[in-house]
Design a protein around this nucleic acid. Sequence first.
DNA 1: ATGCGACAAGAATCGGGTTTTTTGTCGCGA
DNA 2: TCGCGACAAAAAACCCGATTCTTGTCGCAT
Lengths: 160, 160
Amino acid sequence: MAEHCFSSRQVSRITGLTARQLHYWQRTGLLSPSQQTSGGHARYSFTDLIALKSAKRLLDAGVSLQRIRKCLHSLTRFLPTAQMPLRELSLVVTGDVVLVLHSTGAFDALSGQEWVLPVADILEELESWQGDGAYRPTQWELFDDVGEDSEVGTQRLNQG
Amino acid sequence: MAEHCFSSRQVSRITGLTARQLHYWQRTGLLSPSQQTSGGHARYSFTDLIALKSAKRLLDAGVSLQRIRKCLHSLTRFLPTAQMPLRELSLVVTGDVVLVLHSTGAFDALSGQEWVLPVADILEELESWQGDGAYRPTQWELFDDVGEDSEVGTQRLNQG
DNA sequence: ATGCGACAAGAATCGGGTTTTTTGTCGCGA
DNA sequence: TCGCGACAAAAAACCCGATTCTTGTCGCAT
């Protein structure tokens, strides 16, 4: 593959990251350009661009750099690059976590851990208890009757 | 529908929650039995059971009760019960958040906010820049070259 | 038996101050 | 022009004590 790909300036223009950020990220090991000129100037590969652009997106979504650090780190561990068709991945970002959504499920980009609780399972599990004296509803409505009249301000347990 | 469904004892046996918990949850408005006997004894509906069982699962997954509170609260807001086929839902639990996975995507059960970053979009966006002087890889490998030799312990910026 | 109130241990949250991280800006040198 | 080092502001993480929440246990009333 070609040695020269993208200069810092190009990458900066393309990804929206500042030169300062690229430099700092290289310095702290988040992502170094895969090539360098003999003069020590950065040359980022297209693969680098993908990672940088992803990171930039996460940043814009409010994920802190430290979190991104961990994410990238475990992504390298948990994504078998040969197998994973990248186009089918999605990153789901909420305030605190970054999930990797895959066709087969989802897992936490930080820990790689996966906890999925299909509601269907719960229904199945409960249905075996229905003989205990209940009707059999056909239309499930979940959480329909939570905290209606009793206010959450009522909890004065340890007081007089 | 039938008035009598499940007594506290039954619910306790079925869900694995203690009577104490059921009582406290009722008291604090997390979930009250939808029926009561004239004597003031609890009668939980099957719908209640689903909610309780879900909550129990979240508890077991390490989600704190306060978080569950918020989850249930926003779930009631964000799930149009009439439309949502419950069997297609999954709760994705990671350390800090509870996500509701739906066929069309996922959203945070706490805030209802949704940020999905399909990697395919990133690729698409980048491909328009390829003329800038790069090769055209056919096999994407992401995050393959992150933090290899340069240690993260190197960042001594503000020092001498 | 079930509900209810009281007390207490343990867990979780909150608030504020401190430390670390991240980024902008400037200046120098190749 | 690009990289590099230094200083400083802003943001994020961290720590720790205080507060609040959750749950177990006991005793009493219905």
